[in-house]
Nucleic acid binder design. Structure first.
Lengths: 213, 213
DNA sequence: CGCGTTCAGTGATAAAGTCACACAGCTAAC
DNA sequence: GTTAGCTGTGTGACTTTATCACTGAACGCG
């Protein structure tokens, strides 16, 4: 059964209608939920797991725009739904995910009949805009070594000290080239902040700077 | 009297209510509509003129996120309104502007009672997200010389061949440093693409590549 | 084991950002 | 008109990041 906090904004009757007309789907890691150019068929609710949304430039280089996790709404889809434009980004499952899709008609009805639902949608939209603005700032003004360190620490604070990720993937996270990541990591290794192995990064010295769990 | 296409999504009675409760204001060039950190008091409708929305990084460097013109809605404000967060950007009038503000309460009512109004709002939101994603791509992957040329041509195609702008301002448009702009422009001048003067850029050779008016 | 594939390291070079400073063009006060 | 001061531009020196080309290491599998 679908469990998503936005459903709690609905009254008894709308919620029942919604639950009967959506079905929860499972997606394995690596699965592509949607890709650039595709059109949108409804509003995806993420119930569980982790999904990254990334964009690919003409050069073939990519950058991760944001992630969605349990209880998120794929607000990007609403834009596509409303403007009729295709997606500009692609969504890829990272950790086994559960999601349900609210079809267009039902979405319109919920927007019409529930002020709370509307509020939740607008809030999610606002948050997404905010995220993207932060990203613009990151990319335009901040140094890559700082961004890399922060990325590693953000990951580590979720408990792991050994990250399983390739330099290529990290490049896409930060929107830079693989070589740049390799060089910066090598420098961190020289400073005893990390230990490197194929496909793995172990945080050693850096762990001292860990955000409180 | 306020003239904005979103008002046409409203029925007779809602439109009348709206028109009586909003007032059109005039803003001279240079006026700051809102600045970073401020809280939002309603949804601004742009009736006429040109307003740029820009962000300033910690380094003090800025970048223009997008522009609003006649018939635009300041969707960014909705996000602030809904999440309660302050603005992350600032809005500055470029060309004498007219705008009206729909207060929070009325906005909620319009969202409640007009499906068409809702649609227009969501559409505007979608477009803004799209703009920002394009910007991320620009900043992350494209070369500065290309972006500069494109910016100049986009301006020129509005009729002018002589742009009144300083290198500093151009730097903020593109999110780069003044020196970088100076050097790239100097190079264009060496190639007889532009002629430079204090506070002015005249498009000469570049004008051949003008987008059809 | 040997072979192919993916991942990582690195030198060379180009583009962009940063810092420091010189100087030019304009304005306003004298 | 001359001069002081401000804003805008030009440029050298240097750092950081991006790009290109290539090498070799680690792994997966027949």
């Amino acid at each position: 059964m679908a469990k998503h906090s936005i459903l709690e904004t609905l009254n008894e009757s709308l919620r029942k209608d919604t639950l009967t007309s959506i079905s929860v789907m499972q997606f394995p890691p690596g699965q592509v939920l949607f890709s650039a150019g595709e059109h949108c068929r409804g509003l995806p609710l993420v119930l569980d797991g982790s999904i990254k949304v990334q964009m690919t430039g003409v050069s073939g280089q990519g950058i991760v725009l944001y992630r969605m996790g349990a209880d998120d709404i794929c607000t990007l889809s609403i834009g596509c739904l409303m403007t009729g434009r295709g997606y500009r980004a692609e969504a890829i499952v990272e950790e086994e995910a559960e999601a349900a899709i609210i079809p267009r008609g039902l979405f319109d009805r919920l927007m019409d009949q529930s002020a709370e639902f509307r509020l939740a949608i607008m809030e999610s939209y606002g948050k997404r805009l905010d995220d993207l603005m932060l990203l613009v700032e990151e990319v335009a003004f901040r140094r890559m070594d700082e961004r890399l360190e922060e990325w590693l620490l953000a990951r580590a604070s979720h408990g792991q000290r050994v990250l399983a990720i390739t330099h290529q993937e990290l490049g896409i996270e930060l929107g830079t080239a693989r070589e740049v990541v390799s060089r910066l990591l090598k420098e961190l290794e020289r400073q005893d902040q990390v230990r490197l192995a194929r496909g793995k990064i172990e945080l050693t010295g850096l762990a001292g700077k860990l955000a409180p769990a």
